[in-house]
Design a protein around this nucleic acid. Structure first.
Lengths: 206, 206, 206, 206
DNA sequence: TATGAATGAGCTTTCATTCAT
DNA sequence: CATGAATGAAAGCTCATTCAT
C-alpha cells in the first residue's frame, strides 16, 4: 500500500531503536514497534526476519550514526589540550543527546555483548573514534603538551566513563540523590567538572 | 521440601538477583529462578507474590548489601585526601566485585527507575553513602586540603562514573576495543589512572 | 478444574491420535485436539510440551496398543498351518479395525521414520510380534508342515502387505476402482483370497 | 528470468511433486517449491493459482506418468501365467522406482481421496491398467490356465498390495525390523517370494 | 510474461499467575 | 507450610495469498 519500501523499512528501524532503548530486547514488543512505525507486525518480519535480527540492525544503526557524527570532528587543527577537550565534549554531548544509544549499549551489556561479538560490521564502526584520540595523544606527547605515560585507550575509557554514567543512570540518580541530572544546568556543571578532571590529568606535571 | 522457610526464601531471592542481573526484568524467567533456587515456581509466588515484587525485593537487597558494606569504611581517622582516595577505592572495588549490583542498576534505569521511585525504604538505603563523602569534603575544605569550590554530590557522581562504566560496559568494551577490561591488571591500571584524576581534581591549585 | 490429571492426559492423547491420523503431523491443529479432548490448547502443552512430543506419544501409544492386543494371541496350541492363518487374520483384523494405526504409520513414513528412529521404547514394542511368527515358522519347518526355505521376516512383511494396502489406500481404491473396499463383504472376500495366497505359499510342495 | 514459460511451469510442477511426496499437502511449503524450481513463490501462483490446485496437478501428473509407462506393457503375446507375472513385476518395479508416486497416494489417502474424488480426468487415467489385467484373467480362465473363481479386481488389489507396502513403509520397516528393505537384494528376495505367492494363487488346483 | 511488496489470518508456544487441596 | 494442576492472555513467527506495476 505504501509502495515505498525504503521509507517503511526506515520507520520500522527507528521505532525499533526507540522500543529496544525503552524496554530492552526481551521487553520489546513487536506490535508496539509496528504501531509506532505506522506499519504492521507482519512487515517487521518481512524486512528483518526476527526480533533478534531487528535488534542487531538497531545496534548497527546507532553505532553507525555515532561514526557518522564523528566525521564532523576536526581535531587536527587544534592544540593537543584543546583537542582533548573538544573530543571529550563531543563524546559527552553525543551521549547526552542520544540516550537511546546509551540505553542500547546497556541492553547489549546485559546480554554480555552476545550480538556485538558476532557482528561483522560492528568492529569497523567503532575503531575510528578511538583512532582519533590516539592520534591526538601521540601528537600531544611528541610536542610535550601531554603526559608521556598517557595510554590513549585508557584515556578514552575514562573520558567515556565520565559522560556515560550520568546519562545511563540519570533516573536512579535523580530518584536517589534528588539530583536533577537530566537538567541542562546540572549536566553542564558536571561536564565542566569532568573537563577539569580530564585536563588536569593529561597535562604534564611541570 | 526443605522445612526451612527462611532458607528457601533466601535462596529464591539470591537466584532472583542473579537472574534479573543476567536478563533484566522482562527477560527474567520464573522457572529459571525456581530451578536455581532448588525450589518451585509456586514457592516464588508464595513468598513474593509477583515478579514485580520479587524484583523490588531484589533491588532492595542489593542496595541494602551496599549500605552494609559501607559500614566498614572508617574515613574519619584519615587525612582528607587519603579519605577521598579510600572512598573512591571502596566504591570502585564494590562495583567490580558486585557486577550484579551494577547490572540491576542498569535494568532499573532502563525502566526509568520506576520501582526505585516508588520504594519506601530505598532512599534511606542510599543517603548514608553520600553523607559520608559530604563529611569528608566539608572537613577537607575547612582544613584547606580540598578545593573550596568542590561540590560533594557532583564529586560523588564523578567518582561513581569512573568506576561504573568499566564494569557496566565491560562486555561491549572488550568486544569493541579488544581491551580485556575484566582482567585484574587492566582494571587496576584504570583504577590507578582514575585515582590520579580524582586527586588532581580535588586538590587546591596551590 | 477437572482435577483428574490422568483422565485429561488420556483424552488429549486420544484426540491427538485421531487428529494426527486424519491430518498428519503438519496438518494437525492444536486447537482441534484441545476441543476434541474437551480441554484447552494450553493443557496440551502442559502435558506434552510440544506438538512433536505429542506426536511421538501418539505413535508410542498406538504401537503399545498393538503389542497389548497381540498378547491375546495363543498360537502355541495350534497346528503350524492353522497358526499361520490365525496370525494373518489377527494382523489383518487389527489393521482393519484400527485405521488410525495405519494412518499414523503412513504419516511416519512420510517423515522417513524420523520420530520412530529416535524413539527409545518403540523397538521393544515391535519386536515381540515378529518373534511370534518366527516361532511358528521354526516349529512348522521342524515338523515338515511348512516350506523349509521360508524366511520368517519376509513372510511377516508379505502378510502385513496383504492387509495393509486395502486399509491404507481404501479411499483412493474406492475412488478409482469404484471398488467399495471399506465394506465388510469385500474386505472379507479379499481376506479370504489373501489367506489362500499365504497358505499356498507356505505349504511344502509335496 | 527464463523466458521459457513451459519450462518454468514444468520445473515448478516437478518440484511440487517432490515436495508433496516428502511433506504431504499440509507440510509442503511454497517457498521450498519455488526455490527447488529455481523460480519464485509468485510464479507458483501465477501458473497454478493455489496450493490445492498445484497439488491436484501433481497428482494428475504422477497418475498420468503411470498410465504412460504402462503403454509399454505388451501382455497379449504372453502365456496367461507369464502375463500375470509380467504384470506383477511391472507394478512392483514401478512402485519401487517411483516412491514419490507411492508417497502422493498415501497423502491423498490421508485426505480421504478428497482431491481424487472430485477430479475429472483421474478416473480415466486409472481405468486402463485394471482393464489390462482383466483381459489377461479372462483369457487365462478361458484357456483353463487360471483359476475359474479368480476375480480380476481383487487380484489387482492383492498384487498391488504386495508391492506397495515395502515401498510405502520402508522407513518404519527398516527402523523397526532392522530389515534393509530399500536395498536391491532384499527387495528382490521379497519380489521373488511375492511372485511365488501370486502364481501359486492363480494357478488352477489341478 | 513476470515480479517485488504487502498482508490477514492463524499457528505453535511461552509467560506469569491462580486454583484447590 | 507446601505443592501439583490448571489457565487466560499474549508473544513471536509462518503461511498462503493478493496488490500494484
Amino acid at each position: 500500500m505504501k509502495r515505498d519500501p525504503q521509507a517503511t523499512r526506515k520507520r520500522i528501524l527507528e521505532a525499533a531503536i526507540s522500543e529496544f532503548a525503552q524496554y530492552g530486547l526481551a521487553g520489546a514488543r513487536g506490535d508496539r514497534i509496528a504501531q509506532a512505525a505506522q506499519s504492521s507486525e507482519r512487515m517487521v518480519y518481512y524486512y528483518f526476519d526476527s526480533k533478534e535480527l531487528l535488534y542487531r540492525a538497531a545496534l548497527e544503526k546507532v553505532y553507525g550514526d555515532l561514526r557518522d557524527a564523528e566525521q564532523a570532528l576536526a581535531l587536527d587543527g587544534l592544540e593537543p589540550l584543546a583537542a582533548v577537550a573538544a573530543f571529550s565534549r563531543f563524546v559527552w554531548r553525543y551521549y547526552a543527546q542520544h540516550p537511546e544509544f546509551v540505553s542500547l549499549l546497556n541492553t547489549e551489556n546485559l546480554r554480555q555483548a552476545q550480538t556485538l561479538r558476532t557482528s561483522e560490521q560492528l568492529p569497523e564502526l567503532v575503531a575510528p573514534i578511538v583512532a582519533l584520540l590516539k592520534a591526538v595523544v601521540a601528537r600531544g606527547q611528541h610536542a610535550g603538551k601531554l603526559r608521556a605515560e598517557l595510554d590513549a585507550v585508557r584515556l578514552y575509557v575514562l573520558i567515556a566513563s565520565l559522560g556515560y554514567f550520568v546519562v545511563s543512570n540519570q533516573h536512579t540518580l535523580s530518584a536517589v540523590l534528588g539530583y536533577p541530572v537530566a537538567e541542562q544546568r546540572s549536566m553542564q556543571a558536571l561536564a565542566d567538572d569532568a573537563l577539569g578532571m580530564v585536563l588536569a590529568f593529561v597535562k604534564p606535571l611541570d
